[in-house]
């Protein structure tokens, strides 16, 4: 039940911290805080996440675009949400992958410098129970995920769902789904 931190070989001066919360009572407030920019984190809907790697792929792309000044959305946080989506429609991405104000669970993600992450401070705003990231396997809605990412049986015969998802996230600029 701790915040997990992951390193990025491509940006060795940075790291990504992730924490999963259930039984959250104040998603509504969290949403408002996120909108005003007071929360230094991305708030995600955990049911759309099949594995932590999916988050890492989105974060890496966000950081890359941020560093070469080619971000599509306004902030690094919103960029992470956008990158999870297989579509180029920004508001659709927020709707599907961002935490909803009526939700009861949330995934907190923060891209930070290697030396110092402040996700624990952000976590203090969450009125809920921090659980193990392994709970993701249980809370992800596989059928909904397959539908949104448009993954069909033909592909699953030659690939894992996770690989199908991240490939779409990575290539959406070049192909439509």
């Amino acid at each position: 039940m701790a915040i997990e931190t992951f390193q990025n070989e491509i940006f060795p001066d940075s790291a990504i911290s992730v924490a999963l919360f259930e039984s959250v009572a104040n998603c509504n407030d969290l949403k408002k805080l996120a909108m005003t920019g007071e929360l230094d984190a991305t708030l995600l809907n955990p049911s759309m996440i099949v594995d932590t790697f999916q988050i890492l792929v989105a974060c890496n792309k966000a950081l890359h675009l941020d560093r070469c000044k080619k971000r599509v959305t306004r902030t690094l946080h919103s960029e992470v949400i956008y990158n999870l989506s297989p579509s180029k429609n920004i508001s659709d991405a927020f709707r599907k992958f961002g935490m909803g104000d009526k939700d009861t669970s949330v995934l907190l993600v923060q891209i930070h410098s290697l030396r110092k992450g402040t996700l624990s401070e952000v976590a203090e705003h969450v009125q809920g129970e921090m659980v193990d990231l392994s709970r993701l396997q249980e809370v992800s809605d596989v059928n909904k995920i397959k539908k949104i990412y448009k993954v069909q049986e033909a592909e699953l015969r030659v690939s894992t769902l996770l690989d199908a998802i991240v490939s779409r996230m990575t290539s959406k600029e070049f192909v439509s789904f």
Partner: peptide
Amino acid sequence: VRSIMRCRMIGICTPAVYFVDME
């Protein structure tokens, strides 16, 4: 990248793509 995606979708095995750095 496009071709890899198209092949995967029709059930042809290709490597998964993790990141494309156009710079």
